[in-house]
Amino acid sequence: METLWFAVVTLMLAIFIVLDGFDFGVGMVYPFVVRSEAEHRTVLASIGPLWNANEVWLIAAGAVLFFAYPRAYAAGFSGFYLALILVLWLLIFRGLALELRSHVDHALWKQAWDTAFTTASLLLAFVFGAALGNLIRGVPLNRDGYFFVPFWTDFQPGPEPGILDWFTVLLGLTTVSILAFHGANYLAMKTAGALYQRAVSTACVMGWGSAGCTALTVTAVPFVQPSLRLNFAGHPMEYLVPLSGIFALGSSLYLRHRRRDTAAFLTSSAFILLMLASVMFGMYPYILVSTTDPALSLTVFNAATDSYGLTIGFAWFGVGLLLVVAYQSYVYSLFWGKTRSDDAH
């Protein structure tokens, strides 16, 4: 049961990265692909009705983490205090930018929210990548099961790390490039004409950037967190997951160049899902690895709530998830296909 909820939380986070990831990506490539006000409107309308529900996957994943692993939620959220509050502020700005841009018909108003949208999307993608880096690298948990990391110390992933060190910065940049690629793929799928051409060429650049960054990250991981490699060495079959992830990235790049838009987007989604699944397999059973003493780490077993809670939760979560999948796919189907500028609200 503890393991099952670990899979649920990571799956929810992975869905969040795939779904909200494309609208983050759209935010990042936005200034590079749009030229006219009509194009601005088309791009925003392509994510307008969907981004909010995508973001809920993050909120719900946080809440499910709280419910299933209260100890990990408490330690993680207070330990990454500064980064999380920064995430909150950025989410507020990003949400406002998307909601408020159309309310006032004035060039300066629109420019201000466009800048806020791009900046917040970029920084959030970076912070989410750095957060993943922190989880892989580990944090200095104390005997009471808590820790606190400042933004940075000496930029080294040692026993007293900061949120930012060379490894987590690398993961941040990798995430930025992957989500920009993913977002440009989405835009290519949703647009036509000159906008489409620019989305495709941006996607190509970002796709090769993703490939380079991913190669660096995959090389760096075993040095920073050896236990990840040990986990894979113990279950060689699991190597299939990251390998198929890399295969998905390769296919996505190929399909991108062949202008198979939907297939390119689906394979970049698969790439993100498989890479996050690899991290999950590599980390299990750890949720938060301690850099000070491995025995202080929080695992899916010592951080979980009791068995009644996990079992009853499974009943309502199953029902809830079916409902969510049903109406979220319904809403997606309503907005399927190319977006036009007069779709804006």
Partner: peptide, 18 residues
């Protein structure tokens, strides 16, 4: 959160999901 998560985690997670 650590103290009460075993109870209020349920209602908060249900809010998110439902």
């Amino acid at each position: 959160s650590n103290f009460a998560g075993g109870v209020i985690g349920q209602t908060l997670a249900m809010e998110g999901v439902f």
